[in-house]
Write a protein that binds this DNA or RNA. Structure first.
Length: 293
DNA sequence: AATCATGACAACCGCGCGCGA
DNA sequence: ATCGCGCGCGGTTGTCATGAT
């Protein structure tokens, strides 16, 4: 792999500056960006009259000068979100940052490495999810009771996500990715994708879940199968993936918990309810309890 | 007051990827 | 198909402020 030409001595043998940015440099870059907007960073560095490489300018703009940056300490809510998303996404700082408007990947990474990691190390019971109810995450011990308040081994809540395109395509019983959704401020005060959606038909939903559990080696695959096998029509031939078997399912209860721990119930056969996902429909998992009645 | 340790934040570095020539 | 270039990401290092000794 070739070394990047950026940040090495320029062709004209001009020595590029490194290290901390001076207020004058900040002002030059800020003024240029506000009047010209983003473009090729090498050009920006040159045209703004900075003796910096494009890469350095890009970093300074993204991490420090950008007007939409939120300043100051992380709020407890942001902390919880970082912990939650890190438990799901790992060190994908840019993806985590994309879910915390006004925060940069660098900022979150630093915060994690300097504060949160140590805090978790010192307190192994540190709550890593936004709500106690979300402790169903696959990385945590599962609760023996579901969010219907029942003690049941066969209706454990399932961590579900539309994380990949494959999943998204599979779960076409969710009404086209949501209706009436869009970015906005949620009731909790977070900016994110406020998504509403509809489950169309119980039988389609269960069928999709059944397919999903077979196609993907889910940790909780057995739980899903077990639950589906409770359907009388499935008892005779539980492993057969025959869509007709699902046609008798016309009643189902379900409950969805979003990343803020809000529960959204729908326990009738209309199965039309809206629920809210606090951030990104395409990536963020949510908890789903379901029972086949 | 001087020194050392620690934490928070800023910036750099190397790498991989995508794109156009 | 290959190369050059720019960009973005994640890991790492550097710098500064603050507190403890």
């Amino acid at each position: 792999m070739r070394k990047p030409a950026e940040c090495s001595t320029a062709a004209a043998n001009i020595r590029l500056r490194k290290g901390l940015w001076s207020p004058e440099e900040d002002e030059k870059l800020m003024r240029y960006m506000l009047s010209n907007g983003q473009g090729c960073w090498t050009d920006i560095a040159r045209n703004a009259g900075l003796l910096r490489c494009g890469k350095s300018c890009r970093l300074r703009w993204i991490n420090y000068l950008r007007p939409d940056l939120k300043r100051g300490a992380f709020s407890p809510q942001e902390e919880q979100l970082i912990l939650h998303f890190h438990s799901l996404l790992g060190n994908r700082w840019s993806q985590i940052a994309a879910r915390l408007p006004g925060r940069t990947d660098n900022e979150i990474k630093n915060f994690w490495n300097s504060t949160l990691k140590k805090r978790m190390k010192n307190n192994r019971n540190y709550n890593i999810t936004p709500s106690p109810n979300l402790s169903h995450s696959s990385e945590l011990p599962r609760s023996s009771s579901n969010s219907f308040g029942e003690q049941s081994s066969s209706s454990k809540p399932l961590l579900f996500s539309t994380f990949s395109d494959d999943n998204y395509q599979l779960f076409n019983t969710f009404g086209g990715g949501g209706s009436g959704g869009g970015d906005g401020i949620t009731e909790e005060g977070y900016f994110g994708d406020y998504t509403t959606t509809t489950i169309v038909e119980p039988k389609d939903f269960v069928r999709d879940f059944y397919d999903f559990s077979h196609l993907h080696q889910l940790e909780n695959k057995d739980i899903i199968i077990e639950e589906i096998n409770k359907v009388p029509s499935m008892n005779n031939n539980p492993q057969q993936n025959n869509y007709e078997l699902f046609n008798n399912i016309d009643q189902m209860s379900f409950e969805v918990e979003d990343i803020f721990g809000n529960n959204n119930n729908c326990q009738n056969n209309q199965l039309q309810d809206h629920f809210k996902i606090g951030a990104n429909w395409d990536f963020d998992p949510f908890i789903l309890d379901f029972q086949i009645d």
